[in-house]
Design a protein around this nucleic acid. Structure first.
Lengths: 223, 223
DNA sequence: CAAAAATAATAGTATTACTATCAATATTGC
DNA sequence: GCAATATTGATAGTAATACTATTATTTTTG
């Protein structure tokens, strides 16, 4: 993602925030240091008060952007998946072969994230760690269904649907394209977690990547 | 699991609790109604105070069994996976064919749970819902590594290792037995969640089960 | 039946996740 | 350049959480 895209903005659904954090300097700092602080101390210990201290601002000011820390997490995950979706669409659009497209798509959702200088206030590497460690907390709640209706998880579902469609493009008769796509997307996060914490139940490590595993799994499954 | 096993006890690592909840009436009530209350209001809203009110006991008494609600969750997930492991070992031991064994094992970790009358104070159906909705919160914490060293996740890892070994028994050359086993185990929980909340990104529903999907995925992957 | 163990009751603490109010500062529109 | 408006900051307050500590009461058991 080089400079030609420098005025690109990742679109996050408006009802997730009270005030668009992209619209002001304070908003951007909330997102920038919010990512760093959650990465540092974990989402459970993270509070708006601590974030306020970190950015020399006031707790009450942060509440004007996000109703709760939960909403901030939903915002960050939406941003992340929209960013991944953008890379996926961009990287696959001119590939001639459907299987190649699918392989590329799997690579993009499962690979280790590298810093993207297009969005200067977002540390994508730290954000990726947050997605691995915390993103499931954004939907494992009692009000998933209500929030889902409000469109909070739209981007994520759209990304999975795109991969599902790519699977069908390779094999229109495959019976489980959506389940396979969601297994790849969530499973990759899980494999990254396992290689960091529960090494004995994964084969992924410095030389075997989750990408390799999921590409092989997928191609064998749908052929 | 019929009556011949009526004095069976599921073994949960001793350092998870302060006092064995199986050792007293109050302990069993804590587990029994803890499951029901977490299932009812969700783990995030669950407190020992509320549980105390439900079982007509005191908050402070519950703290003598479990240091925190987090430890109770770790206990419940350990109990659950030990129970699944027991079913898996029991159901596969006399099968002659390795592929049949593996299919049976996958069925057991991915299927919808039915009530098991062997453990009268445990509602396995409610516990299964807790595993689907809350179990990842037991390890997505800042102290996973410390707790892992203490053996909190031993049962879970042993179960995944068993499945991994069964995969190898079918195909000793398969390169990713552990990753596949962990993907099946965690992926099944995820598919159950999706069919309840994000239907559009799964193919699982009343007629297509996660078991069917994962059996087919696995056999295609390792053949 | 006494001693020990388990449970209950009460109180207390620091922190969390906010809301409300008012003051200070910055921005903009004319 | 200044008034109106919007934004941010400061302070205070609240109910609930996640505990710990202490003491009283009840139950168990040797």
């Amino acid at each position: 993602m080089i400079n030609l895209l420098s005025n690109l903005k990742i679109a996050v659904s408006e009802n997730i925030y009270l005030k668009d954090p992209e619209s002001s300097d304070l908003g951007k700092r909330i997102v920038e240091y919010g990512i760093l602080l959650i990465d540092e101390i974990g989402f459970d210990s993270f509070t708006f008060k601590k974030l306020g201290a970190k950015i020399d601002s006031n707790e009450s000011s942060i509440y004007r952007y996000f109703e709760s820390k939960h909403k901030l997490l939903v915002y960050l995950t939406s941003w992340y998946w929209a960013w991944i979706e953008y890379q996926l669409v961009f990287a696959t659009q001119n590939l001639p072969d459907e299987e190649q497209k699918l392989k590329k798509a799997i690579d993009i959702v499962t690979r280790v994230v590298k810093q993207d200088s297009t969005f200067s206030h977002i540390n994508e590497v730290a954000l990726n760690r947050i997605i691995i460690n915390e993103s499931s907390k954004s939907y494992l709640t009692t009000d998933v269904d209500a929030e889902n209706k409000e469109g909070y998880f739209k981007v994520y579902k759209r990304l999975v649907s795109r991969i599902s469609q790519m699977i069908l493009n390779v094999n229109p008769d495959f019976k489980y394209p959506s389940s396979l796509a969601s297994t790849i997307t969530e499973g990759a996060l899980h494999q990254h977690f396992l290689k960091d914490h529960f090494k004995s139940i994964t084969d992924c490590n410095d030389s075997v990547s989750p990408s390799e595993f999921f590409v092989e799994l997928t191609l064998n499954a749908i052929r």
